[in-house]
Design a protein around this nucleic acid. Structure first.
Lengths: 278, 278
DNA sequence: GTGGACCCTCCCACGGGGGGAGGGTCCACC
DNA sequence: GGTGGACCCTCCCCCCGTGGGAGGGTCCAC
């Protein structure tokens, strides 16, 4: 092996490692990949051929969008730790893909609709409703999943009990971590209702009646934010105060039609004012 | 409507639009969403309820990762332009998804292999080869696609002409824009060979013989960068100079086995030195 | 009138570089 | 032994969108 003393200048090393000179200098400054020798007089950086392996690895991981800090840890870490770090990165990318897919679905609708599609906003009144519900907590991005799980639990709990469609979903006004959501249905008639709640682990939730603003969304649930956008804009433009929880009525849902035909009624109750209902 | 004079402070407005105060101030500074009124004495920003629509739209588009400049253009633009901008964003997200998928595939292998998998590196010699090839130009990320197209054209061009497996792919040493690639095969025997090239639009490429460094990759082509990483590291660690083009021999490829069993031999010729072959 | 919630501006930080100014060094060729 | 051009150095500012915090003013309900 002759690789001990014929060092490479930064430019040459950069070319053969598919990195830029700027990058190599940056990796030196940050301690990620210091050159084998630095001329104390001129400051020139000289790299050993044996450093090509690490440099190529850095280039590869950067192409995979792995943060420099993680690359540094990966190079320094031993075997079990290294695999753990890479798995974490893999999970990060996988999650970004799934979020991007949701974004894509929304952008599809926005682009096809030639901008923000028009939603017809209806001001009305809702009666008081008493729902048998199951509850869950969801983070952002888990809403669809958790809501679906709630529907399953609710239908299991309601088994044999008559209930009036549609199913209702209840959500907070603000999206964020630890959202408390619920899915429920109005049971048909008073007989045995209390029993249902006791036996199946269902709870009761009373939705007060009053003035509401509502709209109807046709399409997959990933596009619901567009409808909420229009709905909340209409609420605030009128100076109204929305009241949690927001209610979704699933008029046509999964299993009944293709996603393009799903129909969801979005209802938000607002504070009683003189103008509402006029 | 009573929305003309009951303005909202920045904090209240931020909460109802799902934006942070910092964001709203930033959007004011950049002209994207200036408040309806600014108190000249105190600098306090006051927002009109009617601004909630734009603010919610900004929040929505930011959640879709649309850049602020594009959001500004979208809000300002008329109908055909707006749809065009949104389509461009959609395409951007779609492309990021496809790139992330390639990244994910590589990270899968890295994570499963518990780090960088070990490739056995072989130093050897290759004979001179004369290939009938078709050529193409590819950008980064188009390699698999363009190579596949070349294979199709080559097989069509070779129709009826005997050739010796494997197929070979030829690639430059540096990835980048406008890579000139080729796919070819050794035709069997001399008879009619010139005819093949003339008739089918194939060209000839002569691969010089000499010392080579090689390795074998098992798995999908998206994971080839890992093998190249190991191969080039081995080349440079030994102080050898690689010579373009890099050659891939497709020993087991699509249509013959599932992707996990595809077998590809990677060969890079190096400059003749005293050590090689010893 | 006072406390606490709210608001202001200004500066710095992140990550992962790119661009460029201003100036020194290396080496091959003449 | 020059010299020209390619190469290298440090230092600073820029991108994007946002968060954090310092230091200080304002609003409003009790």
């Amino acid at each position: 092996m002759r690789d001990q003393d014929d060092f490479l200048t930064i430019g040459r090393f950069a070319r053969l490692c598919r990195l830029s000179v700027k990058q190599l200098r940056h990796y030196d400054d940050s301690g990620l990949l210091p050159p084998a020798r630095v001329d104390p007089a001129t400051g020139y950086r000289y790299y050993a051929p044996a450093q090509a392996r690490d440099a190529l690895t850095v280039a590869l991981l950067r192409e995979l969008d792995v943060p420099l800090a993680v690359i540094a840890a990966t190079l320094a870490a031993g075997e079990p730790e290294r695999a753990r770090l890479l798995r974490a990165e893999r999970d990060r990318v996988a999650e970004r893909i799934s979020r991007d897919r949701a974004r894509l679905e929304l952008l599809e609708r926005l682009a096809d609709g030639g901008g923000l599609p028009g939603y017809e906003i209806i001001l009305g009144r809702e009666p008081r409703r008493r729902l048998a519900v199951v509850r869950a907590v969801a983070g952002p991005g888990e809403l669809a999943e958790r809501t679906g799980a709630c529907v399953g639990r609710l239908l299991a709990g309601l088994d044999g009990t008559p209930w009036r469609p549609p199913l209702w979903g209840l959500f907070p006004l603000d999206l964020g971590e630890g959202m408390r959501i619920a899915v429920g249905a109005e049971t048909a008639g008073a007989a045995g209702a209390g029993e249902v709640a006791a036996v199946a682990g269902l709870e009761w939730e009373v939705l007060p009646g009053g003035p509401v603003v509502e709209t109807v969304h046709h399409g997959p649930y990933a596009q619901l934010p567009l409808a909420y956008n229009a709905l909340m804009a209409a609420v605030h433009e009128r100076g109204l105060r929305p009241l949690a929880p927001v209610r979704e009525a699933y008029l046509v849902g999964p299993g009944e039609a293709p996603a393009e035909e799903w129909t969801t009624r979005l209802v938000v109750r607002v504070e009683e004012t003189a103008e509402v209902g006029a």
